[in-house]
Simulated scan of single mutants.
Amino acid sequence: MKPMPMYEKQSRKWPLLFLFSTSILIMMMGVICSLKWGQAQVSWRTLLEALTYQGSDKAHLYIQTLRLPRAIMACIVGMQLALAGLLTQLTTKNPLASPHIFGINAGAALAVVVGLVALPHFGNIGLIGFAFVGAALSALLIWSLAGTGRQQYVRLALAGITIHFLMSSLTEGFIIMNQHATDSMIFWLVGSLNQAAWTEVRIILPFFVGGMVLFSFMLPSFKLLLMDDDIAAGLGQRVNLVRGISILLVILLAGSAVALCGPIGFVCLLVPHMARAMVGNNLTILGPLTALLGGNLLLYADFLSRFIAFPFESPVGIVTSAIGAPYFIYLARKQGGVR
């Protein structure tokens, strides 16, 4: 392959810079919208005073302790879910794959519900531990059912969907049998950021930073997942090791997000395709853009969810499902497959 001429590199640099700058600007605007509008009316002056900590009355505290951590949580969780979806699609070589559809989110949700019923006094850290165990067990079960061979990736899809429905049914069964302990879980199971506070932000931040660092460190190796397994193995690459690390990273990113905000649907599936349509399969660019778009999607979806049944709150999962379900049908029916 001939090296790209310098003028072509320069011609690509500016559109990419504009794309990333626009994505960051849109995210900043989304944070401002999330802080400004909602159940309570907030003036621009009050908003500025709250952000600069120049006041401490009820309105300022409302922004500082409720709306600001919720907006930050939406950005973080959206980034984590989007990257988890991208890695799932690369690992399974299935453009319609995601932790949600493949049962990983459902396994994490089941484990959290079981933890709440069996150990109701467990804190959020304990719930994250339960979520990791549930996600890991689901992933192991799916891969064991898929087996090996050329049809492995087809069987992965079938096993993932099967485990998803199994775990979801068990979760609903636990809720029905333990309604007194799980009444507050209804919003969470649809996917909700309503209860996000600084405590949740501090809990998820190490998982977010650790996941981003590991993703950046492994980015050159993850490019192997774009290649055919036989070709990569023929080049002497450790494909199975890279795939294993990818699955662990999916569990880390998706498990911590599900434990705190519930199994928010379709962000994992939708965002990687949006990013891929803009920049192609260059992972060096695709990864960061996927994260930015994921944060933007969940941030604006959470903002819109406040007005569905205004002045009452609605789960953000309603908005992401309303957007993602038609898009999933489009991808599934698209002639010639998806990129």
Rank of each mutant, 00 (worst) to 15 (best):
F165K: 12
W143E: 13
Q80H: 05
S98R: 01
A59W: 04
A109V: 04
A139T: 15
A159K: 01
A108P: 09
G149L: 03
T65E: 15
L156E: 08
H180M: 10
S168K: 08
L66I: 13
H180Y: 11
E172L: 10
L61Y: 00
A106G: 04
H180G: 03
V154W: 02
Q179L: 07
Q54W: 00
R150P: 15
S98M: 07
L110W: 03
Q152I: 12
A74S: 09
I128V: 14
A84K: 14
L170G: 08
P95Q: 15
D57K: 00
Q54M: 01
T88N: 03
S138F: 08
N94A: 07
I128F: 11
A157Q: 10
A118P: 04
N94R: 06
H121V: 06
T91K: 05
I161C: 09
I104K: 05
A111G: 06
L140Q: 12
T88A: 04
I176Q: 15
L158G: 02
Q54P: 01
K93S: 13
G126C: 04
G126M: 09
A146F: 04
M177C: 05
A146P: 08
A111V: 05
V113I: 15
H180D: 06
M167I: 08
L141M: 08
D183C: 02
L90Y: 01
L140G: 11
C75S: 03
Q151K: 11
P95E: 15
T91W: 01
A82W: 13
L141G: 14
R150E: 13
I76K: 04
G160K: 05
N105G: 11
I161V: 14
N178F: 12
G147C: 04
S144V: 10
Y62C: 01
K58H: 09
S98T: 14
H100P: 15
N94F: 03
G123S: 06
Q64A: 11
V133M: 12
V112G: 07
N124S: 10
I63T: 03
I76C: 01
Q80V: 02
P69M: 13
Q80K: 05
L119S: 06
D183I: 10
G103K: 02
R155K: 15
Q89V: 14
A71T: 03
D183S: 08
A106K: 04
I101L: 11
I175E: 11
S169C: 01
L90T: 12
S138V: 08
A131Q: 13
R70V: 05
L87P: 10
H164L: 09
M73I: 08
T162W: 01
G126L: 04
L158E: 07
G55N: 01
L68R: 00
T92M: 07
V113P: 06
L116K: 05
F102M: 14
L158K: 06
A111Q: 07
